[in-house]
């Protein structure tokens, strides 16, 4: 089995390097931009995937997405800090810290109550942001020009490529680490907790603590994703970063991707982004119809999400997914 896990790591590495190379040498800028946004969101979805495997769905992870985004944006506006090696870790840590504190409460809840409690928390943040002028109110504000080790650029194409490579690198690292985590003893306590908390307790481990840990992890990853999204879009506002619709999108992409692999969120996210772009062009008033219809189709006919289709196709050709 150790061999297989190495193979997955290898597969992830090959995949991300291939996307990075394609991006730099082949793909047009508009697609690069789409991948940038998609992978930013995918970081958050990886966090939700860990929760989903544990049997938990949060309708309020926009809380952490927004915390990450606003941490990055506020560091720039209030302190003039655009250094990504400061802003992104800060975004991750801020979300992880809030996740750690709220985790003491949410870990007592399951199913709908877990989902709704998270929704309530996220809407409180939304309400505060909308009504606070100092935090930009409904309009939000711009994000400081990002720099890496103090180096920045005004060339839009160079900046896009740099951000794209950055999201690929962080995406790869996240995927590999989370994959390793899922293969650990603690990682096996995802589906195990979902299946039977009583047995987990009677094997000598606290299900609540296991859930708490995964919650913090998902909060941190969602904060990282939100931080990257803020840098990618160059702007933060409550509607596009913290509202419940953002939580809904994260959950939708999680379901669309499927729980099968840590690579799935990146693929699912990209499909979501492309779908949205084309849907707006082709059928401007049917975006919700498409999202809702897709959700129903997946729940009824494709519970494994897009990943299950890909792995089945790959399996038929005898290729390791």
């Amino acid at each position: 089995m150790a061999l297989t896990s190495d193979r997955t790591t290898l597969g992830l590495t090959v995949g991300f390097v291939a996307v990075a190379l394609l991006g730099v040498f082949v793909l047009p800028d508009w697609l690069l931009n789409q991948i940038l946004v998609a992978f930013s969101r995918a970081l958050a979805v990886v966090g939700l995937l860990v929760l989903w495997r544990t049997g938990l769905v949060s309708f309020g992870h926009a809380l952490y997405f927004g915390l990450g985004a606003y941490t990055v944006a506020l560091l720039g506006r209030n302190y003039g800090i655009g250094e990504v090696l400061v802003t992104l870790p800060a975004a991750t840590l801020a979300s992880a810290l809030v996740g750690f504190l709220l985790g003491f409460i949410v870990r007592r809840y399951r199913e709908i109550f877990f989902a709704m409690l998270n929704l309530a928390f996220s809407m409180v943040l939304f309400g505060i942001l909308v009504k606070t002028e100092a935090l930009g109110s409904t309009d939000g504000f711009n994000v400081e020009q990002p720099t890496l080790l103090g180096i920045g650029t005004d060339d839009a194409a160079v900046k896009l490529t740099a951000l794209f490579l950055g999201v690929c690198a962080i995406g790869w690292l996240t995927a590999v680490l989370v994959h390793r985590y899922l293969g650990s003893i603690l990682g096996s306590l995802t589906t195990a907790v979902r299946d039977n908390e009583i047995r987990v307790e009677y094997l000598g481990y606290s299900a609540a603590e296991a859930i708490h840990g995964k919650y913090v992890m998902s909060a941190a990853l969602t904060g990282l994703g939100g931080g990257f999204m803020a840098i990618s879009l160059g702007q933060v506002d409550p509607e596009s970063m913290v509202n419940w619709t953002v939580s809904g999108e994260l959950v939708f992409v999680t379901i669309l991707s499927g729980p099968g692999s840590v690579a799935a969120p990146f693929i699912g996210s990209l499909i979501f982004e492309l779908l949205r772009t084309y849907a707006f062009e082709l059928v401007p008033y049917a975006w919700q119809l498409i999202v809702g219809g897709t959700l129903l189709l997946i729940i009824f006919f494709l519970p494994g999400g897009v990943w299950s289709v890909l792995s089945r196709l790959a399996g038929r050709r005898g290729v390791e997914p």
Binding site: V57, E111, I112, Y285, A286, L289, G293, L295
Partner: peptide
């Protein structure tokens, strides 16, 4: 009818999908 007895959260998501569809049908 096809959702009875399934996972509660999955049901919420399915009805959420349904909600989105019905909202857009209103516009149509």
């Amino acid at each position: 009818k096809n959702l009875y007895g399934r996972d509660e959260v999955l049901i919420v998501l399915a009805t959420f999908g349904l909600f989105l569809v019905l909202e857009d049908v209103i516009l149509l």
